[in-house]
Write a protein that binds this DNA or RNA. Structure first.
Length: 577
RNA sequence: CGGGGCGUGGCUCAGCCUGGUAGAGCGCUGCGUUCGGGACGCAGAGGUCGGAGGUUCAAAUCCUCUCGCCCCGACCA
């Protein structure tokens, strides 16, 4: 490809709406052009990169015997009602819905569990056909609350979604392991520094789940990891060993104290000269279920925090949020800051974190404005709460197992693998005949990779002040042969010759024959970020060119043969195991 | 949806407070000089100031509504 024939529209200045480096660079280099918020047109160069990412995904999935197919974007409401997700997705507002001319409701697919489960039900009839793993690479649509950071969180984005069907849990474990292997190879080949971390299964549901995270400061997710033990988890999911609390000792008689305007843990520490770890705060949540709403009180040790994702999972609710001041007054009969287990109305469900199990002589609120209680003991002064782990793990705490300390890093979620089990197949009555001739629901897994997000994550991890530094495997071109002065015949001829020889070697090269002065040409190519450059300039008459690696921008003069050899050497990627 | 901010040539922005001739830099076109790190000269093209309504002799500027976009919090590949 001659760059003079390729539509390249780089910008001299950063677009005003780009915040993080990868978004800024992709927009400035003209790789992406915004069509609407969270909706982008991919330029010809960007499309080359996206196709390369997609092809790596295909290669590695196919190696694990997955099969590519294509499902519809437009999906009928009745299909989504068969899994029970229509109402929830519409209520959450994340799904685009529309009506056809007859008034029939449809949606633009945000994901394809329903379609694939119906397809599997229609086509897989016997256990002899299992396992099956099906995937597609397609645009997905989500009415994101806040699209941002370019391709990182778009309303329309390219995603690979795969679905495995097995006869039993052991089969699912194998399918899941195969996908995990494939994912590791995919992100390795894309040149990313990444890790698999334990994850919350979220709205999709199911048991086991891991996220593949590209480590980057701009990442939207917080990860806790421990290098000593190898433990890594999304903070939503992470566990840790809580710091020890002082022993409360044998139960002493409860004491009620006047605490005017003392509402927070910090204030209580000062007022009673007690450590936060000897207190229990009581936080009220408004919890939404499919058919009802409730106020739930959650007790947590004073020095620790509540993990709302864990809490929502324990409560098995649709959504929860901190109760409003009005709700708190209504539920406890006291002002905000004085809620506690003592005298809590029976209709308010009471949970407590595991760290409070067996605790004695706690300092708590007692649902009376201006008062707190000392020496509160469960079962004696108040109900015995339901104990659950609802604690937020934090950096600095010990990792599960106690091998080392947790540190926090940021990550971009580029992939997610789930063990779904029979959640969808049971709901939709999608079955196969078992060896005993009985209908059994498929045991399913589902797996996603954000293809467009992965491409941007690669830029987030690979750039410098001058521009993008594409990992070779996903660069729009691996090598650019830059002819500095296309008006000089010997430069043009030599450039063309090098370009041809690189192409013959199977290298994805392009020829920059654009009539640009050298300064702008160098700047432009650095911004665009091709990993290797062969510069044909004043040495052309003597057969001398320059080889330059974008990553370090070091230039070396050498002969044409040497330059070509350098390119070949650099691009003979070590085989991925 | 809540809170904050912004819509002025292709891009980045000034002008708005205090109403009266629509501006700059970059980019683009032509000619000339230049030519290894975002050159220079000359000549040009390009804007219903997001949209609608209102106030006024007069609105980019003041008021109302509306649409779009960005940022901060709850969703997710």
């Amino acid at each position: 490809m001659q760059l003079s024939r390729l539509l390249i529209a780089t910008l001299r200045e950063d677009p005003a709406d780009a915040e993080i480096p990868s978004h800024r660079l992709l927009a400035r280099a003209g790789y992406i052009v915004k069509t609407a918020a969270g909706i982008y047109t991919y330029s010809p160069l960007m499309w080359r990169t996206l196709k390369k990412v997609a092809q790596i995904v295909r290669d590695e999935l196919d190696r694990e015997s997955a099969q590519e197919l294509m499902m519809p974007i437009l999906q009928p409401r009745e299909l989504w009602e068969s899994s029970g997700r229509w109402e929830r997705y519409v209520a959450d507002g994340i799904m685009y819905t529309l009506k056809d001319r007859k008034g029939t409701d449809l949606c633009l697919g945000p994901t394809h569990e329903e379609v694939i489960t119906a397809f599997a039900d229609a086509t897989i009839t016997s256990y002899k056909q299992l396992p099956v793993n099906l995937y597609q690479i397609q645009d997905k649509f989500r009415d994101e609350i806040r699209p941002r950071f370019g391709l990182m969180r778009g309303r329309e984005f390219i995603m690979m979604d795969a679905y495995s069907f097995d006869a039993d849990a052991a089969g699912l474990d194998e399918s899941y392991a195969a996908m995990s292997r494939a994912y590791h190879r995919i992100f390795e080949r894309c040149g990313l520094e990444f890790g698999a971390v334990q994850a919350d299964a979220g709205a999709i549901g199911g048991s086991g789940s891991e996220e593949f995270m590209v480590f980057a400061d701009a990442g939207e997710d917080a990860i806790l990891r421990c290098s000593a033990s190898g433990y890594a988890a999304n903070v939503e999911r992470a566990d840790s060993i809580a710091p020890a609390a002082p022993s409360g000792g044998d139960p002493r008689p409860i004491e009620k104290h006047e605490t005017p305007d003392i509402r927070t843990v910090e204030q209580l520490e000062g007022f009673f000269s007690m450590p936060a770890a000897a207190m229990a705060k009581t936080v009220l949540y408004e919890v939404k279920y499919a058919e009802s709403e409730a106020v739930v009180a959650v007790m947590m040790r004073g020095d620790l925090a509540i993990n709302e994702v864990k809490l929502a999972n324990r409560l098995d609710c649709l959504a929860l949020e901190l109760a409003s001041d009005d709700k708190i007054r209504q539920a406890t009969g006291a002002e905000v800051g004085f809620a506690g287990p003592v005298g809590l109305p029976e209709e308010v469900r009471l949970l407590a974190d595991e760290t409070l199990r067996g605790a004695t002589n706690l300092l708590t609120g007692c649902n009376e404005t201006g008062y707190h209680c000392l020496n509160v003991n469960f079962g004696r002064d108040c109900r015995e709460p339901e104990f659950h782990d609802v604690r937020l793990a934090r950096a600095g705490e010990s990792a599960p197992g106690g091998a080392g300390e947790l540190e926090e890093v940021r990550g971009i979620e580029v992939g997610h693998i789930f063990k779904l089990g029979t959640k969808y197949s049971s709901a939709m009555d999608a079955t196969f005949s078992s060896q005993q001739g009985k209908p059994e629901p498929f045991v399913m897994g589902c797996y996603g990779i954000g293809v467009s997000r992965t491409a941007q994550a690669a830029v987030e991890q690979n750039h410098d002040e001058a521009g993008i530094i594409w990992p070779p495997a996903i660069a729009p071109f691996e090598v650019v042969v830059a002819v500095l002065d296309p008006k000089k015949d010997e430069q043009t001829a030599l450039g063309q010759q090098i370009y041809d020889r690189l192409r013959e070697s199977g290298i994805d090269a392009c020829l920059d024959d654009r009539k640009l002065r050298p300064g702008p040409k160098f700047k432009d190519l650095e911004l665009l970020g091709f990993p290797f450059q062969v510069t044909v300039g004043r040495g052309a008459a003597d057969g001398v060119v320059e080889f330059c690696e974008r990553r370090n921008r070091e230039k070396q003069e050498m002969s044409v043969d040497e330059a070509i050899a350098k390119c070949r050497e650099a691009l003979t990627a070590p085989a991925v195991s």
